[in-house]
Amino acid sequence: MPTEDDVRRLCLDLPGVTERPSWGRPAWFARTLMARIWEPGVLTVKTREREALAGTDPETFFWTPHHERSPNLVLVRLERVAPDELGELLDESYRIAGPPGSSRP
């Protein structure tokens, strides 16, 4: 089971990613926010596959009414996601957030 420390390591291994709090929780930024701890054990990431992820595995991937207006955000239960899948999700979120120095996500 991946931990917050695993998320931190994977995020900070990406070029130009920085960590700073967002709404009192650890968050990682490329050009824009790419990942954030929503609550203990739950990570917010950007994806273009939110509906497919939640439709395939709603116990792992979900969103709250707060996220309705942000169709690229999905919540991930860390206890249910495989480490390699977490890495893939963070890589995609990084590309969507826009690597530092890019002009668009």
Rank of each mutant, 00 (worst) to 15 (best):
T56V: 09
R69M: 12
A97P: 03
R69E: 14
R69I: 09
D91I: 14
L10I: 10
E59C: 05
A54Q: 08
T47I: 07
T60K: 06
S102D: 03
L43V: 06
F29S: 04
V74W: 01
E19C: 08
I37V: 11
R50C: 05
R31T: 10
V74G: 05
E92R: 07
H66M: 07
A35V: 03
E49L: 11
G16N: 09
G41V: 00
A54G: 06
P40I: 02
D5Q: 11
R20I: 10
L75F: 05
F62M: 01
H67Q: 11
L89K: 01
L90A: 01
L10F: 13
K46Q: 10
D13H: 11
R20C: 09
V42T: 08
G55Y: 10
R48D: 13
W63N: 05
D6K: 02
R104W: 15
A27E: 05
T18Y: 11
E68W: 13
P83N: 02
T44L: 13
L78H: 01
V76M: 12
R104G: 13
G16F: 08
H66T: 01
A97D: 04
G24R: 02
P99A: 15
G24M: 06
R48T: 13
P100L: 08
E88K: 15
E68I: 07
T64N: 13
D57G: 07
R95P: 15
P65S: 05
G98L: 01
E19D: 03
R25D: 11
R80G: 08
G24V: 01
V81K: 00
L75Y: 04
E79K: 01
R104A: 15
D91W: 15
R36F: 11
L73G: 10
E19I: 05
E4C: 06
H66A: 12
I37L: 14
A52Y: 06
R36Y: 12
R36L: 11
A35W: 04
L10Y: 11
